[in-house]
Every structure is written in C-alpha cells, then in structure tokens.
Design a protein around this nucleic acid. Structure first.
Lengths: 149, 149
DNA sequence: AAAATATATATGTATATACATTAACTGTTA
DNA sequence: TAACAGTTAATGTATATACATATATATTTT
C-alpha cells in the first residue's frame, strides 16, 4: 500500500520528506509485525534482539556494555531486559571476576532453542528478493548509512 | 557510519536481512534525533505528529478516528495524546453535535505557532538532496510501499 | 595510600505504549 | 419501540522507555 493511502496524506513537500516519513512508518509497521510474530513465544522485539546478540557470541559471554553497543535501539535499558530474560531462564548472568563492576551474560540452552524457532519466522519478514535486487538493496543500505550523520 | 560498525555486527545472512535491520536501526536513530529536536518545545514525536495532522486540516476540525488513521504509529493512543496537547493549550476538543460519540479536534493558534517553529528544524533531518537523487528516493519509496504487505 | 575521577551497571520516576475492556451513543432489526 | 449490534472514544493495567541518579568497583592523581 502506498504511503499516501496508508497515512491519508496526498501531498508531501518533497520526495525526500516522503521518504523520511515512509522510513518511520515502515519501521513502525515492521515493529508491529515483529511483535505479533514474537507474542506466542512470550518475548518482545527488544528481548529478541538481545537473544540474537547473545547467540552470536555463544558459547562466549558478553558484558552489558557490549550488548548495549550492539542493540538496535540505542536507548534501551539493557539491564532490565536481561533481568526479564533471566526470569524466563533464557540467559545467565554472573559477576565478572576480573572486573567486579562488569557482568558476564550468556544465553542458555533454552534461549538458543527459542531463537532457533523464532528466527525462521522473523526472517520471512525480510525476504525482499522478489521486491528488489541485491544491488538495489546495497544502494539502499548505503543511503541509510549516510543519513545517520 | 556503516550499519556493521553501528551495531558491531560484521556479517549478515543476506543483503536483505541487512537492509531490514538497517531500516529498524535508522528509524530508531531518526526517532532519537527527533526527540532531541522537539525537547526544547516540550512535545514528543507522537504529539508533533498529531499537531502536523491537525495543521493539515486547519481551520477544519478532525475526529479522533481520523487522527488515528493518519498517524505514523498505528497503535498509539490518540485519545491520551490529544489530552496532553489540550493541557498544553495546543489543541481544542469538543463533542460533535451531529454524532455525540465523536469529538472534534482542532489545533489552536498556539499550536500552529509551535508547529511552524519546529517544522523547519525537523525538515532539516530529511534534507537528503545531497545524498540521493529524487529518482532514487522515488525508487526507495516504492520499495518501502511494497514490503508492507 | 587517600582523594578524586572514571567506568559498569542498577534503580527511581515520570511518561508512553500495547492491548483489553468499558462507556456512551447511534443505527438496525425484530 | 425494545433489544441488539456496531461505532467512537476513553480508561485500566501491565509493561516499556527516557532520562536522571545512585551504587559499586576500578583507575588515576596528588
């Protein structure tokens, strides 16, 4: 559906303004789709994001700071997210002996299983191969990288 | 900055997955920039979005339902947002006499002034003319429109 | 080594969001 | 016209987020 219909706005100042708004609108749309996909598994998109990061490091641990560095949402409260995941026994957390300020966080077997189950469904959302070519996707990636000054 | 550096992830399964993640990450980035821009004016991005919608209708009123239809975030609680804006005297709200279930909402003079002041600064965020051509922006818009099934 | 500074994480708090439910009103149908 | 269904908006509640502050530990400076 065209963005004009989606938000019932016929005109935009420029094609650039339209693109700006389209990016925001589409990201919200993606977020809602992701929420729906994850709901049966009892986790939020942010929690999924943390699990994916932890899976990427498995079987190594990773510190809270490193998680924050890798997260899609710059401002999210990693500490509380990890606490939620721990309550669900999807991650383990222990104080780092070399630097007692730090905590070492690691995904559990349960966590790994959950990510594996979910990942497939999430990846369906990004199967753009029928819509654009790899070359175009590359261009779009370059563009997005450039607008974040 | 490249998305690989931004979230410290070297590899992606496909260029499409990278694009998917890039869209989410960039939208969050935009959101944070917008929050910073709006902060001095005491409103949130969602509240700004409502004000812009109302400005587009000015001097006509618009119902709560119509606001929801036009919002960028599908699930936002327009009713409470409008209440916040009313408290700041940026909008007026009154029950529609033709259909007493409905409310007519209208931006105030103060609201209009605020949007005018802010709009300029927000629009700086979407000045992509140095990064891509209008034709390319059109292509991206078409792509985004297509991924929202 | 004590004091000051820096770093890693956690917590407090106000506000926002997701989602279900409720309340008020309108329109339709039996 | 009474009962029912449909629509519009508001509210309740649990959870999430933004942002400031606190706590614990490590490092640097004097």
């Amino acid at each position: 559906m065209k963005i004009e219909e989606a938000i019932k706005q016929k005109k935009f100042k420029t094609e650039y303004q339209k693109l700006f708004i389209n990016i925001i609108y589409t990201a919200h749309w993606i977020d809602h789709e992701t929420i729906k996909t994850l709901k049966p598994y009892g986790i939020s998109p942010q929690q999924y994001n943390v699990l994916r990061i932890l899976k990427g490091q498995y079987p190594k641990c990773i510190s809270m700071n490193q998680i924050i560095d890798r997260m899609l949402d710059i401002n999210s409260n990693a500490s509380r997210l990890v606490e939620k995941l721990k309550q669900k026994q999807l991650v383990e957390r222990e104080i780092c002996e070399n630097d007692r300020r730090q905590v070492d966080i690691k995904i559990t077997e349960n966590g790994l299983k959950l990510v594996d189950m979910v990942q497939e469904k999430i990846d369906e959302l990004n199967n753009f191969s029928k819509i654009i070519s790899t070359t175009e996707a590359e261009k779009f990636n370059q563009f997005l990288d450039k607008i974040r000054v």
